[in-house]
Every structure is written in C-alpha cells, then in structure tokens.
Design a protein around this nucleic acid. Structure first.
Length: 606
RNA sequence: GCGCCCGUAGCUCAGUUGGAUAGAGCGUCGGCCUCCGGAGCCGAAGGCCACAGGUUCGAAUCCUGUCGGGCGCACCA
C-alpha cells in the first residue's frame, strides 16, 4: 500500500536535514482538520522552535520552500506554524485503491493463549470477552505478518472439574441427551455447590472430591473431560473461534515438565527450601529482586506437603511455551468447522513443533495480573530477560451483567449459548421485517447476531470494564457490527447491479471530486489502524476505525447537493462511474477484511 | 495499609508519539426516500475532559497531590 504519510515524513526529514537540523524530531504527519487548507500537515516547526531559536511560522516557511514535493503533491502551504500539503485528488484516490493482502511472514512465532475455560460447565458471558479478544488479536497478528499459534489450555486437574464429575456420580445422573452436555453437567455442579454451602456437609464430601481429583491427575477420567470439552468447543466454534492446539495440564505434569521447571528454578539463587519459619518445608521463590514493594516477596511453588501450586504448573507451562522445556507429545484431536485441524497434547502422541515461541500473549482477565507477573519473574530468575520481555499479558477487565458482577452462585449469569441464541433470534426478526425476500435468512441472522455480540466485546479498550446489557450488545443500530455489515451489504448491492448491467468502465482518476477524496483518505487509514492495533495488541483500534470507515461510506452514499444525490455510482458519467465503482469495491473489500480480522462475517445481503 | 487500573456530553464509549475549534453511538428535538438498500443520512441541544497544582510555544494526553470507582496483595485455582 502506498503509504502517503510515510512518504511525506521522508520528504520533510530530508528538507530538515538540508536546513541543518542535526537531531531530527519525531515527524508527525496528520490529516488536516476539515476546515483547514490542505490534505495532510505537520506541526514539526513547533517542535524545532526551541532548537533553532526561531518562531514556528518562520521555520515552517523555510521548510515549505526547501521541501521536495513527493509524487502526487501539488503544493505546500504554511498555515500558522503548520506546513500543509495539498494532494492531487487523482493521486489520493489511486493510492487508496491499492490491494489488501496479508503482510509477508516474519521470523519468530507468537503464541496466543486464549479461552482456557475450566472444563466443568458451559461458557458464560465473562468468557465471551476472552474468546472475542484472543481470537481477534490472533487474526490481526497473523494478517500483519506474524506466525501465530493459537493455544487453548485445558485445566483438567482443577478443582472445578473434579467437583463437576463428582456431582454426576454423587447424584447418580445419567445423560439423556436432552440438553447440551456442558449445561447439563453445569447444573449438577451448581446443585453440588448448594449442598456444600453447608460447611458440615462440605467437610463430609471433601474426601470423595479429593479422590476424583486424584483420578483426574492420574489421567483416568480423560474421556469424561473430553466430553465436556467437546460441548464447550461447539460454543467457541459458533463464535467463530478456532485453535491450533490444546494443552492439558495433566500432560504437563505427567510428562515431567513441572519437575524440569522446578529443577531449573532450584539452580537459581532465588529459589529455596526454608528449614524454619512460615515456609518451613515448602519450595519458595524470592521475587524481591524483580518486584519491588512486596510485603512478603516469597511465593510458594511446592507446598510443605509436596504438592505443586497452580503457579508452579503455570510457570512450567510458560517455560514450555517459550522453548525452555520439551517433552510434550501431540496428536490430532478433531477437525474444526473451517477444516483447520485441532491438535491436542496426549500421552500417546508424538513430538510436534508446537510451542518454542519467542513471544507469548496470554489472554487472561486483569485479576490474574500478579500471577502473570510471576511468570515473567520466573523467566528472569532463570536468566532469560529476553523471554520475560516477550511474555505479554493481555489483561482485560471483567464483564458486568446489567451493571452487576457475574455470579454463578447467585444465579446472576448468562451462558454464551443463550446469548447467541437470543442474538440470532433478534436478528431473524429484524430480517423478517426489513428484508423478507432475503434468500438465506437463517444464515444471515447467524452472521448478524454473532457479529453483534463479538463486536460488543472488542470495540472497547480491554482495560475498561464493560457492562453486558442485552439491549446494547444486541443492538443492530449505531456503533455495532450490523452497522458495518449493512454498509458492506449496501456496497455489495451496488457492485452486483453494476455487474448485472455490465456498467463497469475504465476509471478516470482525473474526475475525482472532494467526495471521493474524503472517502479515499479514510480508506488510507486502514493500514495504519491495523498496524496500531497489532502494536498495542488490542482489536479495539481496528474496530473503531471500521466504524469511521462505514460512517464515511454512508456519508458518501447519502451526500446531497441541492437536494439531489451528489455521488451516484451507477448513474455517474463514464469514467467517473468506473472510478466510483473501484472505490466502492475497495470499500467493500476493506470492510470485509476488517470484519474478518475481528472474526465477524460480512454478508453480501442482509 | 501497599500496589495496579479507571474517571471525557443525561447514558455507553472513541480521542494517534503532547498538536489546529475535544468526537461518535444511544436518548431528546427537527429534517431527508421521484435517488444505487432508511439496520442509513443531515442538523440542533448537550462538555470546568473528576478536582487542584506543575512541565510546555501547546495538555483530555506527561508529572505531583486530592477525591471517587474497580481489582489485586493465600502453602485457593
């Protein structure tokens, strides 16, 4: 893609060098505000005022005289201290039509872990944000040239799973297939927790739960967990999320990775076994060299009874992810809806090149910030500062439901399946009302419903808490996925008509009007927005850009002069029609590509 | 108590590395299909960018403090 701003930046830099500026400042090229002259401008003269001991307008004038105008720039004008560039409209429109394609692959893998829900009950809206964020960021990084591996961690030796499986046994339940399996198991889990709210009863049940936990650790109940996992995967797939590999916690322990990780740590001066005091008999890590201001810098890795803490397992897992440990074996698990193969760690598998990434992104909510920091500490402790720097915690704030925190126990929760079902139902109703003739209403309702839900999860900055409200998340108006999808469908409709009536003709770029230029400038922001999204590791930048793009397109589409359409596409004269069709095609392609990066489908009609 | 994050229009949120007059959506009010899809568009009202200092030619953005809100500080996961 022709990067207009980068070109200007180079031109300005070279002019500044000729002006004798030895240390170049960051040169900011920005679009000029709507009522200011020019297309792009730079405030660089302000930054240089002090160094050059001259007033910004003087510097700006000198710069304007010395700068060599890049191709497409017709003239330069000084406005106050700003230097503004005027582009030839034809050049900008042509630049905006550059084809979209994924960037070529760079070296080095980035491993994205997301979802990682306990295999013990159905997904709820809190998990939604995780899946939507993780899947989107994986897609974005992939498109921007990273080699991405998507991993979903299966915590099959956790207490939650043990309780769920125990509950089935305890209540003698038999699955009849009348409900989705994960929901059915979840009900038993909730029932068990009601029974255990009585402390005495809880104590009575404890040994039996511990027994299930032991069997889980021994891998005896893997089949039971797999049944739950299969049901959960249905939900993730219906959201449009897929993975490369599943890693089971029990495999990490069974293959000895935990032991190896602890062995590595024990060789460092930070890990020790106190023989007296509070931590007598335990294996602890001193974090004080890496985290300041901790009241108690000691972190338990092995309890005094010899069992490993969750943190210890997590460290082993992180070490494996970054290639410090080997030993996991894999085999194919299942085919995903797109045809992509899903692999899983498995004791009877074989070595495969998963993991060993220089960079990891762990998508986990903000409450896990401390444990995530500990992972970096462990990497630092074994002397791998480089890996610690490459371990990124994509921390997102929690999701509220109608203004209140989610709570399974108080029944203040909604499952993802329920949300999607309702979203699709509402979308179906809107289609029945607005476009009853639509050929594939069921399929489109799914795209719109799921899209609305996913977009609601990624349009806000991850570190801000979001409130899931039915009327908002499922809104089909305003800044929501259906707004983008509608803009796309509208463009598709025009292109279909042009095709059917053979209206395509050779674009005459010289006929570009300010309307085309405005749209072209927004199209040109796709690349930078995407790059920023990838750099900051948050999809919301891209999501917000897409809203801008759709708004620019809708404004273009509806533009009027003297009450008459100012920008007809199909009815435009030869040459201009071709130009507008090309622009519409580019717009449609950009919206579709952007939506796809957020994991949202773009229907041709809706 | 210590640490991290947040505070922008009635509500929900954007706001580029510190740059030109702080922008959207929802809601309210008023307009727009003889026109390629009205899930749309145009306009109006609505702001002490929590508050107080500071740095700077320039601050919603950086620094300090205060006030409000969220979260974290287990031999739980």
């Amino acid at each position: 893609m022709t990067d207009v701003r980068a070109t200007l930046k180079r031109a300005v830099a070279s002019a500044l060098e000729r002006m004798g500026v030895s240390e170049l400042p960051e040169i900011d090229i920005q679009e000029t505000p709507p009522d200011k002259p020019g297309d792009y401008g730079t405030p660089v003269a302000f930054q240089l005022a002090r160094v050059l001991r001259k007033a910004p307008p003087l510097i700006a004038r000198e710069l304007a005289e010395l700068v060599e105008l890049p191709a497409g720039v017709s003239r330069v004008e000084v406005v106050g201290g700003y230097v503004n560039f005027f582009y030839d409209p034809a050049f900008l429109v042509r630049a905006a039509l550059a084809p979209l394609a994924p960037a070529p692959k760079q070296d080095g893998k980035v491993l994205v872990e997301h979802t990682s829900v306990n295999p013990n009950k159905e997904l709820h809206v809190g998990h939604l944000r995780n899946v939507a964020l993780g899947d989107a960021i994986a897609r974005i990084l992939d498109f921007t040239g990273r080699r991405v591996e998507v991993l979903n961690y299966i915590d099959d030796t956790g207490r939650q799973s043990a309780e769920s499986l125990f509950a089935l046994e305890h209540y003698g339940l038999r699955y009849e297939g009348e409900r989705k399996y994960d929901h059915w198991v979840g009900e038993a889990y909730v029932r068990l927790h009601q029974e255990m709210s009585d402390a005495e009863r809880r104590a009575e049940l404890e040994p039996a739960i511990a027994a299930v936990l032991h069997r889980l650790e021994a891998g005896e109940l893997r089949g039971e967990i797999e049944k739950l996992l299969a049901a959960q995967l249905e939900t993730m797939w219906s959201l449009g999320a897929e993975y490369d590999v599943l890693v089971w916690e029990s495999d990490i322990v069974r293959e000895g990775l935990l032991q190896k990780a602890l062995a590595l740590l024990e060789k460092t001066p930070y890990v020790s076994r106190p023989t007296e005091g509070k931590y007598k008999g335990a294996l602890v890590m001193d974090t004080s060299a890496f985290i300041e201001g901790m009241e108690d810098p000691y972190l338990v890795l092995l309890r005094s009874d010899g069992t490993a803490t969750y943190t210890a397992k997590d460290i082993a897992f992180q070490f494996w992810k970054m290639g410090l440990l080997e030993g996991l074996r894999f085999k194919p698990f299942t085919h995903q809806p797109s045809g992509r193969e899903l692999y899983t760690s498995h004791p009877e598998g074989e070595p495969m090149p998963f993991g060993n990434a220089a960079e990891t992104i762990n998508v986990i909510d903000v409450r896990q910030s401390y444990p995530q920091q500990v992972l970096k500490v462990a990497l630092e402790a074994v002397g791998r500062h480089d890996l610690a720097a490459g371990a990124y915690h994509l921390a997102y704030e929690t999701v509220l439901l109608e203004g209140r925190p989610l709570s399974g126990r108080k029944g203040h929760t909604v499952s993802v399946d329920e949300v999607l079902e309702e979203a699709v139902r509402r979308a179906r109703a809107v289609i029945a009302e607005k476009n009853p003739e639509l050929e594939n209403p069921g399929e489109v309702a799914r795209m719109v419903g799921v899209g609305a839900v996913r977009f609601a999860m990624v349009k806000t900055e991850p570190k801000k808490q979001i409130d899931f409200r039915w009327d908002q998340a499922l809104s089909f108006e305003g800044d929501a996925a259906p707004y983008l999808q509608y803009a796309h469908a509208r463009a598709a409709s025009i292109l279909r008509k042009a095709e059917a009536e053979s209206l395509a003709d050779e674009p005459d770029f010289a006929r570009a009007t300010p309307y085309e230029v405005d749209l072209a400038k927004v199209l040109l922001r796709f690349g930078p927005s995407l790059a920023k999204s990838a750099e900051l590791k948050t999809p919301h930048v891209l999501a917000q850009y897409l809203l801008d793009l759709a708004a620019a397109w809708n404004a273009y589409y509806n533009a009027k002069e003297d009450g008459r359409p100012a920008t007809p596409v199909l009815g435009a004269p030869d040459g201009l029609r071709g130009l507008r069709l090309a622009l519409v095609a580019q717009l449609k392609q950009t919206l579709a590509a952007g939506l796809d990066l957020l994991g949202i489908a773009a229907p041709e009609a809706m």
